[in-house]
Every structure is written in structure tokens, then in C-alpha cells.
Design a protein around this nucleic acid. Sequence first.
DNA 1: ATAGAATATTCATATATTCGAATACAATGT
DNA 2: ACATTGTATTCGAATATATGAATATTCTAT
Lengths: 115, 115
Amino acid sequence: MEREREEQLYRLQAELCQVLAEPTRLKLLSLLGERPRPVKELVEATGQRQAKISQHLAIMRQRNIVRTVRVGTEVHYSLTDPRILEACHITREVLLQQLTKQASLAAPLVHTERV
Amino acid sequence: MEREREEQLYRLQAELCQVLAEPTRLKLLSLLGERPRPVKELVEATGQRQAKISQHLAIMRQRNIVRTVRVGTEVHYSLTDPRILEACHITREVLLQQLTKQASLAAPLVHTERV
DNA sequence: ATAGAATATTCATATATTCGAATACAATGT
DNA sequence: ACATTGTATTCGAATATATGAATATTCTAT
């Protein structure tokens, strides 16, 4: 039962990460990190089709990563828990460092650098 | 071109998150967070089939999330960048809080609590 | 050279995900 | 009531993913 509980948690955690595993959704989260926004604005900012954005927002709603408030005809989205962005930030940092490392490995072939 | 670069980054970030979006891989990362381990040990600790574990490890190798060292017949795996665990930790925290919140919403129906 | 232990890969299948297209729904102003 | 604006959903097709089964590879000891 303790074992089951742990597996259950890993499953949930994986589902949460799955939500973060899509470029458009990451972009949306980043935009919502700045401030709450209506769908229209998210569509404009991403340059993607409205239906697509709505679909991704629906997925994030289902996982309680974003929440909504109706304002007239608009639906304003916001982050449920800003810490999600922290997690994103870390993965981004790791990624950037990897890229930098690769670049510095490739660099000597192009121009010599001193360490 | 600036735009392209940004999209490129989101794509890479999504791929990284995708690696975290699988319960067995999360468990493996957690185990490797404690210390480097040979595959055999990971197989034992997870109770999953060897082929499955190797497959998941291969995915994490490809993404540079883990690295390997051969020690005789064994292959020892370790984390490339422990910060990955930080990201995992945060998602786990968020998750736990969500669960707690749900529980506390359900609680009043069972037994009354004071705030 | 060969056997055995540890690990990796290939293949096929079941399942999940993403996206565009079309359409539906909801709120507001007229 | 109706048109308009903003948003959501459904559906189908293409693509991706996870897994078990079988098999291959690598290293060590003999």
C-alpha cells in the first residue's frame, strides 16, 4: 500500500510533466506567467490557430494548471500555481547550459578560446 | 530569426519535459539522485523488466539526462545534472499541495475542521 | 575459443497525442 | 430575436510512445 501510493504519485507527476512537454503549452504558461490573459490575446501572441490554443488550454485546465474567469465574452486564463514556472525555469537552465557546453566543445574548431 | 530561436528553445524544453513524463523514468531519476547505480540495481529497485529499464535509460541517455560508465560487465548510470531533480521536486510539491487542497475540500463532509 | 552475466537493441502492437477542419456554444449589443 | 465576437468541442488522420518478446552485444573468467 505504501508502494502503491508511491507509484500513484509518480504517475500523477508524470501526467503533470506531460502537460509541460509541449512547446505551445510552455509558451502559454510563460505568457500567463506575466499576467492573466484572455484567449484572444494568447492566440495573437502565439500566432497559432484559435482552436489549437483552446485545446491546449483545455488540457491545462483539466490538470488544474490554469484557471479561468469569464469577463463578458472573454475568458481570462491565469496560472493556478506559479511554481510551475519555477520548474520550467530550471529545465530551461539545464538546457541552456547543455547548449553552451556543446557550443564550447564545438568552438575550438572555429576560433580558439582560452580558458 | 529571434522568433525561431525562441521556438527552438521551447521545442527542446518540451522534449526534456517529455522525458520526465513517464513514471518509471521519474523513479529511475530519483534512484540515481541518491547515487550512481548499475542497471541491475535499477531493475531490482523498480521491480520492472530489464529490457524496459534499459529502454528508458536509453531515452534518458539520448537526452543527456544521465551518463554511463562501464565497470567490468556492469554499466553504471548517474545523473548528468542534479538540477533535474529540483524540477521534479517542484512539480511534486505542486502536486502534493493540490492533493492536500482536494482533501481539505472533501474533509468538511467527513469531520469538521477549524481554521 | 567459449560460457555466462550484464546490458542493449529490434520489432510488432496497442495506445496516446497533436492538429486542422468544421461546428457548437456563450455573452453582448442592437 | 439576431448578428457578432470570443471561446470550446468533436472528429478523423497522421504521428509518436510504451511495452513485451525475442535477440544481440559486451565484457570477464576459464
